[in-house]
Design a protein around this nucleic acid. Structure first.
Lengths: 205, 205
DNA sequence: CTTTCAAGTGACCAACTGGTCACCAAATCC
DNA sequence: GGATTTGGTGACCAGTTGGTCACTTGAAAG
């Protein structure tokens, strides 16, 4: 989606631009972000930015794809090797996901911001653009899991799992006030709490 | 919080102003709303609006209080009369809540918008301002319910309930594409689905 | 050395923002 | 009646926005 000129740039320069833009969008959201601040931050001129990307929206969508892809690559490296048991599977995936957010706070905030763009112009466009691409990671994760042992329907299990997971993740991330930087400790605490919640759901289904 | 001048206005005029402002905020969110459009919509002058409210933020907070209060009044009319059983209690409250959102779409969108203001300037101010006031309706709802019969801790029950409820509500509201206007049908369908979800949680706890 | 050509620049643009203030009209006061 | 206070007005302000374009610069091509 960017113009060729951009893709033929020195990789360092490309990254300094995308870094600045991701930071800006993560900080202010799409509508309140400023291309002026972006060019100031990465030290290029306004004219250049708009030669690289035809407009702000194109830049935004390019970054969504870039960051999403990167997160997917770094996080779902070995879906095949995950445990067969539904709950162990979810647990293991969720902990790598949350670790990625903790280790990449700016990109994490960026993705959270993208996901929570409401019903404004840009929010609708995002959902329109990525409705196929997404199909939810969790659906992928739960696709080839045997659920015949449960009473509840597959759809209900998927839904409730997603609600609890996203609710818990959000609340857990918000609870990290930056004071505890020891990732191993964080992981441990996360696992402990999530395991409890999953136990409840396991008995429920 | 508004200036006296506003509160001494004809009630009709007050409402035409608040209606226009609520609609504007519901449609665009705080940051992207325009005081110019508001005054145009309700037919007053810019000068007047800023005599009534010292600035945009004051107007916004006034509306948050007003709409929240109204919703609380119209929705939690008889908390005392709710069933003693935890799940029947939650079910009954949730259905009146969702009905209110369906019957008051603009105010509903406004409140949803307020709740989902992210970590921008205004989002932080909102949470700072209403951290005491809120304490979550669900906490009120679950306060004097006997939970000794459950294995899980009260905190866990409250959290999981809230995640599932807000997830389900959001998904249910999004599923209403406006085609089905028969509120009785909507209520019935809502109850049916939520009852299923609650059954799962009941077995889980 | 000159010509060509693409990359990069930043002053500039129209549109819009929240907010102000000198003014106006009408009602109230003496 | 005239003077004064009141609520209401909209042109105006400085600031910011996304986006443009006539221009400079520097290197490669002849």
């Amino acid at each position: 989606m960017p113009n060729k000129v951009f893709l033929e740039l020195d990789t360092n320069k490309q990254e300094s631009i995308t870094d600045a833009a991701i930071k800006e969008f993560a900080l202010y959201g799409y509508e309140n972000s400023s291309t002026n601040r972006i060019v100031k931050e990465c030290g290029i001129s306004k004219g250049s930015l708009f030669k690289y990307f035809n407009n702000k929206e194109e830049l935004y969508f390019y970054l969504i794809e870039k960051v999403s892809l990167r997160m997917a690559m770094e996080t779902s490296s070995d879906v095949k090797n995950l445990p067969k048991d539904l709950f162990e599977r979810v647990l293991e995936y969720s902990v790598t996901e949350i670790s990625w957010y903790v280790e990449n706070p700016t990109m994490g905030r960026f993705l959270i911001g993208v996901a929570s763009e409401g019903n404004n112009q840009i929010g609708k466009k995002i959902r329109e653009r990525f409705k196929d691409t997404n199909t939810d990671i969790y659906e992928q994760l739960l696709k080839d899991v045997d659920m015949s042992a449960f009473k509840s329907s597959g759809k209900e299990i998927r839904e409730i799992l997603r609600w609890v997971l996203s609710g818990f993740n959000e609340s857990f991330l918000k609870g990290l006030t930056g004071k505890d930087i020891d990732i191993r400790k964080i992981k441990k605490e996360y696992i402990k709490q999530l395991r409890n919640h999953l136990k409840v759901l396991k008995n429920g289904f």
